[in-house]
């Protein structure tokens, strides 16, 4: 492990990796029952949906955007798929409809950010409110939609276990692989890094940046739908009220903790995985210790703060190199 670190700058990713290892080891030593195959799988399984969402968010953040509508896009199109399937439509049709919904949301986000030039933070926030509103105003009978028996043919994506590994972990890994290939092996992926790093330079070199911005939001939306289906299959229902919660902050933290800077152009799938594992370990350990909900939030917050602080002390931002308008 230390060999891996040698010669590398102590950046956010490494700091979080070290933090993760420290916490993991101390739990393993001091917490009976933590270091068992079953518990480790439970640990990863409990954060796999968060991780999948993080992958979607990572694409947008690398492209120097942010997508606050992801939770709404996780909840509403997935719940719609379930409602349609429950109402007797063929599952394939239901899923296609949900996919169309998610893509439309992504396109809307992208157009607002790329063409109307509304700050991503605000545009996606408003779109999220709107999508949640569409869900509430008549797509479903109740805000909580049950997993319909008609979709049982795909319920394994969140429920089953193969070779001792839960499918939801595999879903996370599969999504990670796809996103990794997209980001590192395709031209579009390179372009996203390019425009995240310097939009004007990318534009000058001939990259058509606006369609790519739309693409990145579409990908985030589609990934959110996928996460939604995994979540719904796993807990056998979809509570569309999760839009009201502060989940989105967890998603952003997973992404950023791992070292994908909000100023764009840096990071990759590994960062998301490390961030996700850190959060998962903390939550799992504290649940075993029976720490109260608020106590968990407090500890989690402090650990995150420590990670961010260490990074900014070791790699201070300097007035000369800070990008204008970074928040």
């Amino acid at each position: 492990m230390l060999n891996l670190l040698r010669g590398r700058k102590l950046d956010q990713q490494i700091i979080v990796l070290i933090l993760f290892i420290l916490i993991f080891l101390s739990f393993a030593v001091f917490l009976p029952g933590f270091i068992s195959a079953g518990n480790i799988l439970t640990l990863v399984r409990s954060v796999s949906v968060l991780g999948i969402l993080g992958l979607g968010m990572a694409i947008v953040v690398i492209g120097r955007g942010i997508d606050l509508s992801m939770i709404a896009t996780l909840a509403v199109p997935a719940a719609w798929v379930m409602t349609l399937a429950g109402a007797g439509y063929p599952p394939v049709l239901a899923i296609l409809a949900g996919l169309a919904f998610a893509i439309a949301t992504g396109v809307l986000n992208g157009v607002l950010v790329a063409y109307a030039e509304i700050p991503a933070l605000f545009a996606t926030l408003a779109v999220g409110i709107g999508i949640a509103g569409i869900g509430q105003s008549g797509l479903f009978e109740y805000d909580i939609v049950a997993w319909p028996p008609a979709l049982d043919s795909i319920s394994w994506i969140g429920r089953g276990v193969i070779l001792g590994i839960p499918y939801s972990i595999l879903a996370f890994l599969a999504a990670a692989l796809v996103v990794h290939i997209f980001l590192k092996k395709t031209r579009m992926g390179f372009f996203i890094y390019a425009l995240g790093d310097n939009l004007l330079a990318a534009r000058i070199t001939g990259v058509r940046v606006r369609p790519i911005i739309i693409l990145q939001y579409v990908m985030a939306s589609v990934i959110a739908l996928f996460a939604g289906l995994v979540l719904a299959a796993s807990s056998a229902n979809m509570d569309t009220r999760i839009f009201n919660l502060t989940w989105i902050y967890d998603v952003i933290l997973v992404v950023v903790l791992g070292g994908i800077g909000l100023s764009g152009g840096r990071g990759g799938v590994w960062n998301v995985i490390i961030g996700t594992l850190l959060i998962g370990t903390i939550i799992n350990g504290m649940t075993i210790m029976n720490v109260s909900f608020e106590g968990q939030n407090l500890v989690r917050g402090m650990v995150l703060l420590a990670a961010l602080m260490t990074d900014s002390i070791l790699n201070p931002r300097n007035e000369e190199t800070a990008k204008q308008g970074d928040i």
């Binding site: 109307a116 605000f122 709107g130 949640a132 569409i134 869900g135 008549g138």
Partner: peptide, 17 residues
């Protein structure tokens, strides 16, 4: 509630644009 959210979102986006 759903309709208000849609209206709110629409106004926000129009005003911002």
């Amino acid at each position: 509630a759903g309709t208000s959210r849609i209206i709110l979102a629409t106004i926000l986006l129009l005003a911002a644009t």
